[in-house]
Amino acid sequence: MSDREQAFQEIFKANSKKIYHLCLGYTGDSDAANDLLQETFLKVWQNLDKFRNQSMISTWIYRIAVNTCLTYLKKEKRAAKDELTPNIIETKEEEVSEKQEQIATLYKCIAKLEESERLIITMVMDELPYPEIAEISGISEGNLRVKIHRIKHKLTELYNQHERL
């Protein structure tokens, strides 16, 4: 295996799961999330040499992922994701458990948020530091804190409303 492939393998291993969560939170569909993940890492592979000297490689990967998710609209107009998509239902049927149901509900609620909110909240839940989220989303840290506060409140309300149903 070449050095380049070795480096890419390590980067992929360290970041793919979180990027997949971001894509899944944005699309609500596992097939689409896998496609977006692949597209994101294709860009990473293409630009690997530019990354070599970057200390925060994850920030760049996240930024590519966010932009790839936003570009996704260009290719396919997605209907409002207020219903569980077949892939999530499939997972739910395979492993029927309270936890799985809660996760499915959480994704369902995330799908009801605006696009930028979906992207930001998945990064918050994956515990990315606020300065990094601000850097990725291009929003000032102060504004981001306000925004995150609102999104957290909105998501919690949506989730609790859903649980009451």
């Binding site: 492939e5 890419f8 393998q9 992929f12 291993k13 793919s16 799961k17 990027i19 997949y20 969560h21 899944l24 596992s30 999330a33 896998n34 993940l37 692949q38 890492f41 294709l42 592979w45 293409q46 997972t91 936890k99 809660q102 996760i103 959480l106 839940m125 994956d126 515990e127 957290k152 409140h153 998501l155 919690t156 989730y159 609790n160 649980e163």
Partner: peptide, 29 residues
């Protein structure tokens, strides 16, 4: 009633993993 921290707890419980492998990305490229 759940607060946001409980939602983060649920989020961390998920076992969802991508079906894409790094070799597939290189091949696709």
């Amino acid at each position: 009633m759940k607060d946001f921290d409980s939602l983060v707890g649920i989020w961390n419980e998920q076992k969802t993993a991508p079906k894409v492998d790094y070799k597939e990305v290189i091949f696709a490229y």
